[in-house]
Design a protein around this nucleic acid. Structure first.
Length: 280
DNA sequence: CGCTATGTTGTTCC
DNA sequence: AGGAACAACATAGC
């Protein structure tokens, strides 16, 4: 699930549940999930509290109390926790042990008895301490957030990209937060073929694309990324991850605009849904 | 059993 | 050098 709208939903959930409670302990099932070694992470978290959150693209940053932003007095601590949800990550805040969700491979124990589970079904998720979100984003070459980028900035990113527009939009350096299904939805809403070359788009097409990014992201966040609640004009329903007992039927779901048959093919190495008629 | 998967990264090849 | 293509990662679910 975790593209930008899901991570934004997790961020709000985290803010509502986990702030201003000292941390007592930490459980990590598999240290491969950590980007900071376990002992350093435990020392950095214990007796501290989360005091705020920030999100850029699919990255969630959580600020810890006790140290000024970006400073590390003893070399063992850092003031921000970074979480990346991979393909299947999720959060769950709970108190009773019997409510521990499946795949809760990382647990933060608060001193008030509540716990935060970082649910990691496929172990593609990552957690660790960082100095500052800004330094992390720079190091990882992550571009502007999808909700923040301007049409001019987007056009500039496309200017020298000969690749198909789909992988260019998937690249977090172009714009942060768009993943496979959102890019398909954005291209459908903008009525652009996923294999159009990024540097061949007209200014009007770039403007449409920018508008579609805003539309899809804001719609998804408003619905808390519950796909079934999205407007019927959205292509997402052709995927229907949660409700289709017949996968082969999905590939032949019709276009929400013209009711023509959808095309399903690999573009940029990912399964891509589009309407050849509407997105010609 | 075989296939696919919402993401990122490292390698290889131009 | 820079970019594009693709395999690999680890596991679940169908």
């Amino acid at each position: 699930m975790p593209e930008l709208p899901e991570v934004e939903t997790y961020r709000r959930y985290f803010e509502e549940t986990c702030l201003f409670q000292p941390i007592a302990n930490l459980f990590v099932e598999d240290r491969k999930l950590l980007t900071t070694d376990y002992d350093t992470l435990l020392v950095g978290l214990r007796d501290r509290s989360f005091i705020g959150t920030k999100r850029v693209g699919k990255n969630l940053f959580v600020q810890l109390d006790g140290l000024p932003d970006g400073e590390s007095s003893d070399g063992l601590t850092a003031p921000w926790l970074h979480l990346h949800f991979g393909m299947t990550g999720d959060l769950a805040y709970f108190r009773d042990v019997e409510d521990t969700p499946r795949f809760a491979r990382i647990l933060f124990f608060f001193q008030n008895g509540f716990k935060l589970a970082f649910i990691c079904p496929r172990k593609f998720e990552r957690v660790g301490l960082i100095d500052t979100p800004e330094a992390y984003l720079l190091r990882k070459k992550i571009g502007k957030d999808g909700l923040e980028i301007s049409v001019e900035e987007l056009a500039e990113k496309f200017r020298r990209k000969a690749a198909p527009i789909k992988p260019v939009l998937m690249d977090q350096a172009t714009v942060a937060g768009l993943g496979n299904w959102i890019v398909d939805e954005v291209l459908f809403q903008a009525r652009l073929h996923p294999e159009r070359r990024a540097n061949n788009l007209t200014p009007d097409e770039v403007a449409r694309l920018h508008g579609a990014i805003q539309l899809v992201l804001t719609t998804a966040i408003t619905q808390e990324a519950q796909y079934s609640r999205f407007p019927t004009s959205f292509l997402i329903h052709a995927r229907e991850w949660d409700s289709s007992p017949y996968p082969e039927a999905n590939a032949h779901r019709s276009c929400p605009a013209c009711r023509g048959e959808l095309t399903v093919k690999q573009v940029g190495g990912r399964t891509t849904y589009f309407c050849g008629a509407c997105q010609g």
